[in-house]
Design a protein around this nucleic acid. Structure first.
Length: 264
DNA sequence: TCTTTATGGTGAG
DNA sequence: TCACCCTAAAGAT
C-alpha cells in the first residue's frame, strides 16, 4: 500500500470527507483511546502529506501524526459496517468512516515535531516545496549505490521499494551504480519520472508504471499483472527486451532489474 | 491450521 | 546487519 502516492491521495480523500464537520473520533481497538477522546467531535482544519507522513491539523490546534509503515492501512468503509479487526483509529464522516489499522505511528504531536519531520525529509516531488535541485545535489553527494539511496527519505521523500525498482528500470540504470557517478541529466530524469509516476499513483490510487506506449493501452486499464516492469517479476521476461528479470538484495531489501536494459 | 509475506522505519549490537 | 514493531491476507501443509 504505502509509498508517497498513497499518503497524498489519503490527504486528498480525508480532506474531502472530513473537513467542515464535527468528526466522531474513536479507537475501537483501544490503543489510541485517550487521544481519541481529546479529538472526538473536533473539526479538521488541514490535512498535509509529506513523503510517507500524514499530518491532520484540527481546529483545537491538535496535530495528529500518522505513518502507515509497512503494513498500515487507512481505508474508507460505509459508516454502518460492523467493526472488525484492530482498528486503532476511526474517523466518522457523513457516509464514510475511515479505519486506520497497523500504523507505525499514530500520535498527537506538537508543532515542533512536525517541523522536525519536515526538516529531516528530502524533497517530495508531490509538494510545491519539493526542489529537484536538492535531489540532484544529494545524488551527487553520495557514493552509495543508487538502488540504496533512492530509499533514503532524506534524499527524496515518498519513494519506496516498488518505485525504486521501477524508476531504475525506466532510466536504464543498474541498482549498484554509485550515486555520485550518475550524470546530472540522469539525476534529473530520475526526478522527473518519479514525479510523473507519483502523480499517476495519486490519480489511480495504485502504482502503475508501464507506459501506454509499452502496454498498448491506457494505464488505468492495466491489470496487476501488467502494470509494472520489474518489481516482483523475477524470472519473467522483460517487457522491453525479453531478458529474464533478476532479483537481488540492495540495502537489505529485495530489488528487481533487467540485466540487459540496466547493464552495470 | 499453520507459516510467510508486505509498497517501512527504528534501535541495538 | 539484524531483530523487532504493527496487522491481514495469501500461501503452504
Amino acid at each position: 500500500m504505502p509509498e508517497g502516492h498513497t499518503i497524498h491521495r489519503l490527504a486528498r480523500d480525508l480532506r474531502k470527507d472530513l473537513t467542515q464537520r464535527n468528526v466522531p473520533v474513536s479507537s475501537p481497538q483501544g490503543r489510541f483511546a485517550e487521544s481519541a477522546c481529546v479529538l472526538d467531535g473536533d473539526v479538521v482544519s488541514r490535512v498535509e502529506a509529506a513523503g510517507k507522513h500524514l499530518f491532520m491539523h484540527w481546529e483545537s490546534d491538535q496535530i495528529l501524526h500518522i505513518h502507515l509503515g509497512l503494513i498500515g492501512k487507512f481505508r474508507p468503509y460505509p459508516v454502518n459496517d460492523p467493526l472488525t479487526g484492530e482498528i486503532r483509529l476511526r474517523l466518522e464522516g457523513e457516509k464514510t468512516a475511515w479505519h486506520l489499522t497497523g500504523p507505525q505511528t499514530c500520535v498527537l504531536v506538537e508543532p515542533a515535531v512536525v517541523a522536525g519531520v519536515l526538516d529531516g525529509l528530502g524533497p517530495d516531488p508531490l509538494r510545491r516545496d519539493g526542489r529537484r535541485g536538492d535531489f540532484v545535489d544529494r545524488i551527487a553527494g553520495s557514493k552509495k549505490a543508487v538502488g540504496a539511496i533512492l530509499l533514503d527519505q532524506d534524499v527524496i521523500a515518498g519513494i519506496g521499494n516498488v518505485f525504486r525498482s521501477e524508476l531504475l528500470f525506466m532510466v536504464g540504470i543498474h541498482p549498484s551504480t554509485p550515486s555520485n557517478s550518475l550524470t546530472e541529466d540522469q539525476a534529473d530524469e530520475i526526478w522527473n519520472i518519479a514525479a510523473d509516476l507519483l502523480r499517476v499513483g495519486v490519480k489511480l490510487n495504485r502504482i502503475v508504471t508501464v507506459t501506454p506506449e509499452d502496454a498498448g493501452a491506457a494505464r488505468w486499464r492495466l491489470s496487476d499483472d501488467e502494470r509494472l516492469y520489474a518489481y516482483k517479476r523475477e524470472g519473467l521476461p522483460c517487457r522491453r527486451c525479453g531478458t529474464e528479470i533478476v532479483i537481488g538484495k540492495v540495502a537489505n531489501r529485495s530489488m528487481w532489474w533487467c540485466p540487459r536494459c540496466q547493464p552495470g
